[in-house]
């Protein structure tokens, strides 16, 4: 964790280093101590730094380099085209569809999963019989591999499949859709599957956050005559703030990079028509299947920049207080 932070600092530029340098020792013993500390830090972080550089930074540099070429993966890249691949991407309506789908998944996940997870977590935080079982059940979809979930839902949702039969037997045959074939419906179907899978993760995070809410506070509120609702609204939820923001952050990044589920659940034709494409599936479809390696790298860089900027903005404006450790409002 620390090592990643230390590398990101020189790369990311201006972000301030919160820990460390204020301790200026004057006597020599202090200085020797200090030096030993640095040897330790360098010794312990070197393997991680090496791996990070070789498998993250260097490939990233290569991606940027290749993205400036018209290159089909045959022979070394020779035809330098500058930013042409980037302009081509933003001119392709399918890529714009992919961007729109990613945005929909980001906001859809936050707006749908957030309230559901909060409600369920508050319920599961109360004491009742079988609570452990419920907690487990809620978490099961998250444990399953994404590919497994995708294939499972694909089978359930085939035309006249299990879901359709279930709806009809419940007298809701009117709701039956071509879940994965209707170009206007498919992205909502995928969003529903994503919600089903990831809401459990949000719930578990929030439950962990809830266990950190001191009983004294809720007890005090109760003694003061607050109802259960009032306690949740004015005591518990505000104290859950940091957890909720961390979950939002993870959900946002995951939604921007979503690939596996879309890839296995939605067929190539529906993806290539833009109905279910995301930036990541678009990248693979064009990079490998259309053999536009330079172009695929450009898309990868765009995806990276969007995720990186989103992450930075989120950290800057929403997570700053949390990173400073302001859970109980005590600033450093």
């Amino acid at each position: 964790m620390t090592s990643a932070n230390q590398i990101r600092m020189p790369a990311g530029g201006a972000s301030a280093s919160p820990a460390g340098p204020r301790r200026g020792g004057h006597d020599s013993a202090r200085r020797a101590d200090n030096r030993r500390k640095w040897y330790e830090i360098i010794g312990l972080t070197t393997p991680a730094v090496l791996i990070y550089v070789m498998f993250v930074l260097v490939p990233m540099g290569f991606a940027v380099y290749y993205s400036l070429f018209r290159w089909r993966g045959v022979g070394p890249p020779t035809e330098f085209v500058g930013l042409r691949n980037y302009t081509l991407a933003f001119q392709d309506p399918i890529f714009l569809d992919a961007l729109r789908n990613n945005a929909l998944i980001v906001f859809g996940s936050l707006l749908i999963q957030g309230p559901i997870a909060l409600g369920v977590a508050l319920l599961l935080n109360r004491r009742f019989r079988g609570r452990a079982v419920f907690r487990l059940l809620v978490f099961v979809p998250y444990v399953l591999a994404e590919v497994t979930v995708g294939i499972m839902w694909k089978l359930l949702l085939t035309g006249d499949g299990t879901v359709d039969a279930l709806l009809r037997s419940l007298g809701m045959g009117g709701l039956v859709q071509a879940w994965l074939a209707d170009l206007d419906v498919v992205i909502w179907t995928l969003l529903a599957i994503l919600t089903w899978k990831y809401v459990g993760f949000a719930i578990i995070l929030l439950l962990a956050g809830l266990s950190n809410v001191p009983d004294e506070l809720t007890e005090a509120a109760a003694i003061d005559g607050a109802s259960w609702w009032q306690i949740q609204r004015h005591v518990t939820i505000p104290l859950l703030g940091p957890t909720i923001r961390i979950w939002m952050f993870l959900s946002m990044i995951g939604s921007l990079q979503i690939f596996d589920m879309i890839w296995v659940t939605s067929v190539p034709a529906v993806r290539s028509l833009g109905a279910s494409a995301t930036m990541a599936t678009y990248m693979v479809d064009n990079g490998f299947f259309a053999r536009l390696w330079g172009y695929g790298n450009a898309v990868a860089v765009i995806l990276f920049v969007i995720s990186f900027v989103a992450a930075l903005l989120f950290q800057r404006f929403l997570l700053r207080r949390d990173i400073e450790g302001a859970i109980t409002g005590r600033a450093k």
Partner: peptide, 16 residues
């Protein structure tokens, strides 16, 4: 692959 893929995508659009 490059022309082939674009061609197949455009044909699928006719189907859709």
């Amino acid at each position: 692959s490059t022309v082939g893929n674009a061609m197949n995508d455009a044909i699928v659009a006719i189907f859709a």
